[in-house]
Design a protein around this nucleic acid. Sequence first.
DNA 1: CTTATATTTGTAAATTTAGCCAATTATGCA
DNA 2: TGCATAATTGGCTAAATTTACAAATATAAG
Lengths: 110, 110
Amino acid sequence: MNPKIRAQFEARAKIIKAMAHPTRLFLVDHLAQNGPRCVCELTEMVGDDMSTVSRHLSVLKQAGIVEDERHGTEIHYSLRMKCVLNFFNCVEAVLERDVRERMKLAGCGR
Amino acid sequence: MNPKIRAQFEARAKIIKAMAHPTRLFLVDHLAQNGPRCVCELTEMVGDDMSTVSRHLSVLKQAGIVEDERHGTEIHYSLRMKCVLNFFNCVEAVLERDVRERMKLAGCGR
DNA sequence: CTTATATTTGTAAATTTAGCCAATTATGCA
DNA sequence: TGCATAATTGGCTAAATTTACAAATATAAG
């Protein structure tokens, strides 16, 4: 991998990495389902410290996946790139295929 | 996030995490473009130690994204879930949108 | 059986990431 | 101005990830 190619894949990985955490995945899903939401509400949903949730949101924002807008004292986050929801489809496909193949293997053992 | 929901998002995150590394992204891309390939060739393409590449491949395999098959002394890896290629489309969309918006912002400064 | 090649695994060091608490910043309101 | 609420940031520790080197394994060939 030459430096140019490497840089390209690093940029891509950075975006995927932003999605690669259960809490951040949950946040993306929740924003997709419910539209813009303040950090306070998201914090309540997640159940971690607000500072932790805020940091997760900032990772997503840095990656360009969500965006924020201030409303008075609250800051509302919303999904900027809806296409990330496509990730879920494929992820489910992988999980389901795993389940199926594991069942098949279990059957063979009899 | 109750434990059940959390477990669900952890399972999803594990798969996305497997993709969240420049080398692994490159490996997936390369397998998609060129079909099954041995570790030796992939190692040469990547340019890291073979043990490192082997570990990356095992992460992808564990996640169910690639699969392997032995051919004599070589082990050939291939893409098991082609849908992960959809990730690339969205990632490119994010990167392009970033570029566009940054150009627009730069223009405003004049 | 011994050797050579391909791959994986053990291990340890370096780096990154996650999470919490405390402190700071930003805003609206009395 | 001073207080209250919302959110971010600094600082720290714990945990996870990445990586290379060395050692072990697996297979084919002589």
